[in-house]
């Protein structure tokens, strides 16, 4: 009897610890993350430190004035693979009507078809950048930005990326 009583107390206190942790997490300001959702096997929520653990490459893009800028970051394809998006051999048939919607935290949105991102289709490597000249990205640009090489306008190189959302194009 006494043993049961003790374990009950233990269980309830664990329960409350759990709740108060959640409350604390809500009150403190949220660490910036990029969420990967939609037609994925696993939704992801990547912070700067998660990204730091992934393979990095360099990518260059033209800024608004047409000057070349070099960034370092993780190829989008690696992030999508981790989320279990249909790529490579699976990117055929109706999966070719899927797209990735990129949203910045200011609400700005652009899309890419999955085939624009997959090395089976293209040699261009689009990255989610977290560094420029070895330094974290400046306010208003980062902490995460998309870098789309070989485009004449930087309009799809979204600033302050907050979401990568995979969807089927519904006509």
């Amino acid at each position: 009897m006494k043993k049961h009583f003790l374990s009950l107390i233990l269980a309830t206190s664990l329960f409350f610890v759990g709740i108060s942790n959640d409350l604390l997490a809500q009150n403190s300001s949220k660490e910036p993350v990029v969420k990967v959702e939609g037609e994925v096997l696993k939704t992801l929520s990547l912070s700067l430190s998660d990204l730091a653990k992934m393979p990095h490459v360099q990518a260059t893009m033209k800024n608004r004035e047409g000057k070349l800028q070099e960034y370092s970051g993780v190829p989008i394809i690696e992030i999508l693979k981790q989320a279990g998006v249909t790529l490579g051999k699976e990117l055929k048939g109706e999966n070719l009507t899927k797209y990735m919607l990129v949203r910045g935290s200011d609400g700005y949105e652009v899309i890419f078809s999955l085939a624009e991102l997959d090395p089976a289709f293209t040699n261009r490597v689009i990255i989610l950048a977290d560094k420029k000249d070895g330094k974290p990205l400046e306010d208003g640009v980062g902490p995460f930005r998309l870098v789309v090489p070989e485009e004449n306008r930087p309009a799809r190189s979204v600033l302050e990326v907050s979401h990568l959302i995979i969807k089927f194009a519904k006509e």
């Binding site: 809500q26 300001s29 949220k30 910036p32 935290s105 200011d106 306010d139 302050e160």
Partner: peptide, 13 residues
Amino acid sequence: REEFTGAENDKGR
């Protein structure tokens, strides 16, 4: 917007 999202980058937006 910070009040709604909890994100510091949304301060004064």
